[in-house]
């Protein structure tokens, strides 16, 4: 009987995984379309229809998949799959509204940070194996970027976890469900509040880097490297990288939402059951949209691309200092109170 139950549980999880992966991809592509449309309107042009990313995807899927002659073909073809799978996996660890993550209990935010590097590593591997000088330069830049933004990203996570562990010593503080249930803003005093704002700024600065968006799109830099890492990719492989980008955007933004804005509105409206579920999911999507607008769309239309040394400098010095300052303020806040 227990084996049957656990088998049923596993089946349920697999079903959930398929649904979440599908929804993640579809929502990711739609959000990409919305991002492009809004950016276009901010740049005083009409812009593509919102379903354009879908059209791009389907078009690329029917196109020929070309592997360059001097590329290592199995790595070249494997890299996009690895990137897509790892970014979809993160979706299973993310809580939506007050629905616990699908794989809650099997991993925590530290695992997510590792998983987040995987798509980037996939791109680096693909870039190096494609045998083009542009892709090589792009891959080198991507590695430098990864090394640059990890420190501020980890600072944010550690600061939040540490604060939680001070308040709730018995909880698994790095679990996303716990982080989701206890927003940082309610736990800190005025000093810590400023610290939390600084941490949010740090995460907001890391997001465009993680997603390779202007001003931190040096690895793909269109006008310099003609697409950089992706220069040799075409057809199915390029479509998969396109999906990766869409899913990664959702993942990074959801992470920000989970860490800083995990609030729901269903209890305010005194709803329950299915209705509360729907309202919370919709509210979550609205939050994701707002955060995406600030962290991705707005930044990318408002600034120029930075050079790779400037990117490294920006992450290592100013952004890290802001992050560490946030950490220190939160520590001070806890110890003074």
């Amino acid at each position: 009987m227990t084996t049957l139950l656990s088998l049923f549980g596993i089946l349920l999880k697999i079903l959930g995984a398929i649904i979440i992966a599908f929804l993640g991809v579809v929502i990711g592509l739609y959000y990409k379309g919305i991002d492009r449309k809004i950016a276009a309107r901010m740049q005083a042009r009409v812009g593509p229809p919102i379903r354009q990313p879908f059209m791009d995807f389907f078009k690329l899927m029917i196109k020929e998949n070309i592997v360059p002659q001097n590329a290592v073909s199995w790595i070249f073809n494997g890299a996009p799959i690895m990137a897509l799978v790892s970014s979809i996996t993160i979706l299973f660890y993310l809580p939506v509204g007050n629905i616990p993550p699908l794989l809650s209990g099997y991993g925590d935010i530290v695992l997510i940070i590792y998983l987040l590097t995987l798509p980037a590593i996939g791109m680096v591997v693909g870039g190096f194996s494609s045998g083009s000088p542009y892709a090589n330069v792009g891959a080198q830049r991507e590695m430098v970027m990864m090394m640059s933004y990890e420190l501020p990203l980890v600072t944010v996570v550690v600061a939040l976890g540490w604060k939680l562990s001070q308040v709730y010593p018995h909880l698994n503080v790095f679990s996303l469900a716990v982080l989701n249930a206890h927003p940082i803003w309610g736990l800190v005093g005025p000093l810590g509040f400023i610290g939390a704002i600084l941490l949010f700024i740090t995460l907001a600065a890391v997001t465009p880097g993680e997603l390779s968006k202007v001003p931190f799109d040096a690895p793909e830099a269109e006008t310099e490297l003609a697409g950089g890492i992706l220069v040799e990719y075409s057809g199915r492989n390029l479509a998969l990288f396109g999906l990766t980008d869409a899913v990664k955007t959702i993942v990074m933004i959801s992470l920000t939402v989970t860490l800083f804005f995990p609030y729901n509105i269903s209890h305010l409206l005194a709803l329950s059951g299915v209705l509360a579920f729907i309202v919370d999911v919709l509210f979550f999507l609205v939050k994701v949209f707002l955060v995406m607008f600030i962290e991705v769309t707005f930044i990318r239309v408002a600034v120029a691309r930075l050079k790779i040394d400037q990117v490294s400098f920006a992450y290592w010095i100013p952004v890290s200092i802001i992050g560490l300052l946030g950490l220190i303020l939160i520590v001070l806040d806890t110890n003074i109170v």
Binding site: M42, Q43, A44, D217, A221, T223, A302, A304, R305
Partner: peptide, 16 residues
Amino acid sequence: AGHELGFDSVLYISWR
């Protein structure tokens, strides 16, 4: 120049 710097908004606005 804006486009070469990755600042596409400048491209669209100045060409307009």
